[in-house]
Each structure stands twice: as C-alpha cells, then as structure tokens.
C-alpha cells in the first residue's frame, strides 16, 4: 500500500483489537535474524516489534536510524533479501528467514566503499542522520542500474529524505562514482 495509506479513515481496519495486551497471553517471542551475513539471536521481544526496533533496541545496530516510523523518510533503509525496504515497515519476527543487510553489511570494499568515499569528498554529508539510509539506497541503485541518469537517480532516491544538504551534493557524489567506474 502507498504511504498515503495512513489508515486514519478506519476503513478496512477489520480485526482491530483495542483491548490492551494481557499478561496471560505472552506476546514475546525469540528467533534468529540473518544480519549482515551473521546469525543474530533475538530473545524475548514483543511479536509485533518492527525490524527497525529490534535492530536498534535489541541488537544495538545504531546505523539504522529511527525518524518517521511510517516508511516515509528512508533513514531506516536496509536490504531485505536484496530489496530496498524501510525497516520500520517490516515485522522483525517475519524477517526471521530473510537476509537483512545494513550499511555495515554492504562490504568494506567495492561500490559501497566508493559511495561512502564520494559522500565525504563531495560534501554530501552534513548532519549525517540520513546518510546510512542513503548509502544503502545508492549502493542498491548502482548495483541494479550502474548507468542511471540524473532523473533516474532522483526517482530512485525519492524515498530517502535529506533536510540538510539538499540533494545536489548527493547527486554529485553519485555521478562521481559512476564516472570513476566507466
């Protein structure tokens, strides 16, 4: 569903249970996540916790940023089985058999390294809050579409919001990575 699907209308919200979660039915679960190539144990967390919440609050992965929690800002972007997603829209317990990749799992060499270096060289980082999400999204884009033109780059990054630099420096950084690989 689109980001406009706030559900505030109440239409279609069947199955809502407004009663508080009672203590007699334990909502806590334990499972494993495949995170950045390693198996991580997740113990005793609420079954309804998002992947973002589990990564930050239970596994200490602070590069995945928590901003909007509505899938709109992209600062929590990760790859799930190779697809770019907002981890705040993923139910963590339902990601138990998926490969989850954060900026740390993109690798210390190759394209991810080049993207990180270019972000620094071109001043595409100011406060840095959006940067891990951008690096994941940009690395994903360049893997799929190495020769993407500027319009395609802008469209691919529409789900990642930067409120400091604007997008000019970020796009300049991406173009430099593309130029260096030609």
């Amino acid at each position: 569903m689109s980001t406009d699907a706030s559900g505030e209308t109440g239409i279609g919200d069947t199955g809502i249970d407004d009663t508080p979660i009672s203590a007699d039915v334990d909502p806590r679960v334990s499972y494993h996540l495949y995170l950045d190539g390693a198996v991580r144990e997740v113990a005793d967390v609420c079954f309804s916790e998002s992947l973002l919440g589990v990564l930050r609050d239970h596994l200490g992965v602070m590069s995945v940023k928590d901003a909007c929690e509505q899938g709109r800002c992209g600062s929590c972007s990760v790859l799930m089985d190779g697809r770019l997603v907002a981890s705040c829209t993923v139910l963590a317990a339902d990601a138990a058999d998926a490969q989850v990749t954060t900026v740390a799992g993109l690798g210390s060499g190759g394209p991810a390294r080049a993207v990180r270096a270019a972000f620094l060289a071109y001043g595409a980082v100011q406060c840095g809050f959006c940067t891990p999400g951008f690096v994941v999204a940009v690395t994903d884009l360049l893997a799929r579409r190495p020769d993407a033109d500027e319009d395609e780059i802008r469209e691919a990054l529409a789900g990642n919001i930067c409120r400091c630099t604007g997008y000019g420096r970020i796009i300049a950084a991406i173009r430099s990575v593309q130029d260096a690989r030609r």
């Binding site: 569903m1 279609g12 899938g71 697809r83 907002a86």
Partner: peptide, 23 residues
C-alpha cells in the same frame, strides 16, 4: 505509489485489505 522502499514491500492484497479511499 510511494517510494521505491514502499513499492518493494507493498502488495496488491495489502492495497485491498487496507482499502484506503485514495488508494
């Protein structure tokens, strides 16, 4: 619809189940 992150996750069945009036 949404952004690449949303399009990679959101499904046809989800759109119908949520039934957003502006879907």
């Amino acid at each position: 619809v949404g952004s690449p992150q949303i399009r990679n996750a959101g499904t046809v069945g989800g759109a119908l189940g949520t039934a957003n009036p502006r879907g």
